[in-house]
Amino acid sequence: METVIQILLYISDMLVPFLILYVVAHGLLVRRPVYDDFVKGARDGFKTVFQIMPTLVGLMVAVGILRASGFLDFLSETLGNVTELVHFPSELVPLTIVRMFSASAATGLALDIFKQYGTDSYLGLATSILMGCTETIFYTMSVYFMTAKVKKTRYTLAGALLATFVGVAASIVLAGMMK
């Protein structure tokens, strides 16, 4: 297990430099104006962040208020008795539930966990992994199926919940191994 984590950490460290090297070298080889392309893309990246800024203000305020009111602690403590039985950290319960409905609201809760417990704590690591391997099930399903005018979604929800469950379980186990 130790070696698995060592390898995973090694890949984590390598991946970003490797991707930059690969993409830029490939761009130069096919004689693209790599710097111009980069600046154009970076400009789009700017726009994207500025578009999400108002939603982030709204949601971080909402989570901040929930945290300050003591409600989040109350919720974790209440649900904790149940979730402790399956070794699921109670602090992650609100995040896991909200994640299925709204990506930005979940981001607000994830940042709250980073602030409360630290990014590199067990909870911080589990949150980081969990956010990357789960998706807003209900939002995605409603928007996508609305587009196709579908009402009977058959086994989609079951499959989506299964994938999410596996993702959450994997996040917790992997975070536990890293600590």
Partner: peptide
């Protein structure tokens, strides 16, 4: 987000995230 909130190694979660995402996929 991790780098903003003072992570020692923000990128450390990349490979574990890939592992988790591969499992769920």
């Amino acid at each position: 987000y991790r780098s903003q909130y003072g992570s020692v190694n923000p990128a450390a979660v990349i490979a574990p995230s890939i592992a988790a995402t591969l499992l769920s996929a």
